[in-house]
């Protein structure tokens, strides 16, 4: 764990997003977004599909920059960082992508060893120990020599998790970690996220719309809708909320502030029109 992580008080804000506006292709994604993730806690960003959850991760990791407002990680403004500073920041972060994003020309072992080989000059024996330790932690030590194409979706995500923690990051970011998984794999990933947080004290950011799973692991939750945070609190607090956006999302209701139909001309009129 880094000096900064050990020298800061437990509840210090590690990620601060203040009054952020971000638009892409003329479409406003965020306007007045405020979010805080505190050290050592699991923070969940929830919201309907297309609400900009993954975009928020891009802003936090410096892959996209806000038009207005501030995005601070460890107290440093991300948007003004130069590429070397961004790379230094990212070395303190691990990220689990939706599809795992394993390097397809490398086997499981080499995928996990990749960050170590890229950033350190550790002897091969030590790299081996670290890689096997991390693979053991996710239950895939025996799959070390399999290629990514031979893994199931759940296994690929566990390998990606082992790769994400191999450099002992201060922040772990999970982008839709439960998508497309069977209930067993989902439970395994859920338990691993919790274990990583408790055993390693890692600040965890989980982006998802799986309310049930997040309720089990998240300490803090932010519900995003319409470009800003519409509700925050623990998952239980969100569940008790009277706000229509929150009730619709937590209850999985088709009708509510988020409309089922994409904006379209009058249905009957369009049906009666001649085909172009």
């Amino acid at each position: 764990m880094s000096d900064l992580a050990t020298n800061t008080p437990p509840d210090e804000a590690v990620i601060e997003v203040r009054d952020v506006r971000y638009a892409i292709g003329g479409r406003t994604i965020f306007d007045g977004l405020d979010i805080i993730a505190r050290r050592g806690r699991i923070t969940a960003f929830m919201g309907p599909s297309g609400t900009g959850k993954t975009t928020l991760l891009r802003l936090i990791t410096g892959m996209a920059h806000a038009e207005r407002g501030s995005v601070r990680v460890f107290g440093d403004e991300v948007s003004t960082m130069r590429s070397q500073e961004l790379f230094a920041l990212r070395r303190r972060m691990g990220m689990l992508f939706q599809n795992g994003a394993l390097l397809t020309d490398l086997d499981v072992y080499e995928n996990v060893a990749f960050p170590l080989r890229a950033h350190t000059k550790l002897p091969e024996s030590l790299i081996r120990q670290l890689v096997l330790t991390k693979l053991h932690a996710v239950g895939l030590r025996g799959a070390a020599r399999l290629m990514p194409v031979e893994l199931s979706g759940g296994m690929a995500r566990r390998v990606a998790l082992a790769r994400a923690i191999v450099m002992d990051p201060d922040i772990l970011i999970y982008d839709e970690p439960f998508v497309g998984l069977d209930p067993i794999s989902m439970g395994v990933i859920c338990r691993l996220i919790k274990q990583m947080n408790e055993a390693l004290g890692i600040t965890s950011i989980v982006v998802s719309h799986d309310v049930q799973e997040l309720s089990e692991i998240a300490h803090d939750s932010f519900l995003l809708s319409g470009g800003k945070v519409v509700a925050k609190g623990t998952p239980d607090e969100l569940r008790r909320s009277d706000l229509p956006e929150v009730r619709q999302f937590m209850g999985g209701l088709a009708d509510g502030p988020v409309t089922f139909h994409y904006p379209a001309p009058d249905y009957a009129k369009q049906l009666l029109e001649e085909a172009p």
């Binding site: 990791t61 892959m63 790379f87 230094a88 990212r90 070395r91 972060m93 691990g94 990220m95 992508f97 939706q98 599809n99 994003a101 394993l102 390097l103 397809t104 990749f114 960050p115 890229a118 950033h119 990606a160 790769r163 450099m167």
Partner: peptide, 14 residues
């Protein structure tokens, strides 16, 4: 397309 390049950038690898 499969986020491998983005994953590298996230691992601070150019």
């Amino acid at each position: 397309a499969t986020d491998q390049l983005t994953a590298m950038q996230m691992m601070a690898v150019d």
